[in-house]
Design a binder for these strands. Sequence first.
DNA 1: TTAACTCCGTAACGATCACTACAGCGACTA
DNA 2: TAGTCGCTGTAGTGATCGTTACGGAGTTAA
Lengths: 202, 202
Amino acid sequence: MGRASQQGRESRLRILDATLHLASERGYDGTTIGLVSEETGLPASSIYWHFENKEALLAAAMEHGISQLPLEPPEQRGTPYDELVHVRFARAVEMVTSRPEVWQFGLMLTLERRPKEPAARKAFVTLRRRLTDTLAEWWQATLPEEVADPELARKLAVFHLAAIDGFFVGHSADQGWDLERLGRLIAAGVVAQVEKWREGSR
Amino acid sequence: MGRASQQGRESRLRILDATLHLASERGYDGTTIGLVSEETGLPASSIYWHFENKEALLAAAMEHGISQLPLEPPEQRGTPYDELVHVRFARAVEMVTSRPEVWQFGLMLTLERRPKEPAARKAFVTLRRRLTDTLAEWWQATLPEEVADPELARKLAVFHLAAIDGFFVGHSADQGWDLERLGRLIAAGVVAQVEKWREGSR
DNA sequence: TTAACTCCGTAACGATCACTACAGCGACTA
DNA sequence: TAGTCGCTGTAGTGATCGTTACGGAGTTAA
């Protein structure tokens, strides 16, 4: 394998990036092979050499984007509890903003409900489910013992994800939202609520 | 004006409903005149008799949906503060679920960022802005005096809207979310946080 | 040198897109 | 009764959609 297959791999990457970029701006139907061809400078036949069809191309672009997301949970040795929560929310904001195209395209797909579900949507929804589980585990491990129970941890995880989505949408609506500041505000709110439960359990 | 123009008005409504329904399931590009024609049983020429073009049709469908949303703020005479907040959030959930197509299509449009912004998107974004203002005023009027200030009220309004969006997206991801329960959870969280600020200001 | 393989360029395919010209229908007005 | 208006039906327009056939250039293995 020499220069030839290297060029092929580069083209493949260019196609994936262009597709993800276009899809995040125009959605599934708005992303046409013609536009991808135009943005990459490659003819349609090249795109079809690398990918079976449009459906597979968009799925691959989504997987490509997902694989670039920072998903590992942060370290948490010896840090005070409320600070942990703040770091967690900051990380969540970081995740959606590091590769905004993924979340943008993903949310569009999530909202759509066409007869035949695109593979790209399936991939994103699966990511969300996995993320919810990870978050639930994290909350279970992080919550003070007095209030820690699996159902509550799950509720907080669900709310956590909803907050990410909500902030991202607001950000897209171009209302000049400061995602980091809002992340801090909401982290403080969660800490306050947990504090209250804690008092109630005593 | 007799039966003739009555039929015309009915057709117009059928077209608007079908368009909004389709757009909420398949987005802007996925909503084709052919599909609208199929769902209404009317030929394309009828659609073009009522609306100038696709762009105007989708804008009209969005306005039509928006006009059906329950937007008046709830009564608030003599009700205790924390209950007011709960009612407010319950109303917000009611708003997006009473005509889910509006929020679904609206969020898709909000996330899109194509070169030429569709009029339907403009309408929805404007609605959001108006809603944020209304919510900010409501919070300003509702917050306990010790902590009430315009900037905080605005932040809460922004968060309020983000919560609505986030819950709606989660609901669409088909993760079996109970919107009403989550609404109550988050209302409790907000009350707790405000309580904390209140203590801090004493 | 030859054969195979990888990838790109050209040029199309039928289907569907948004949109339109135009004739015809029933209901209303004069 | 004749004419006008509101709306629908038929049959198209050119453009663009996803997709493919095919030839050739460039590289690699025999």
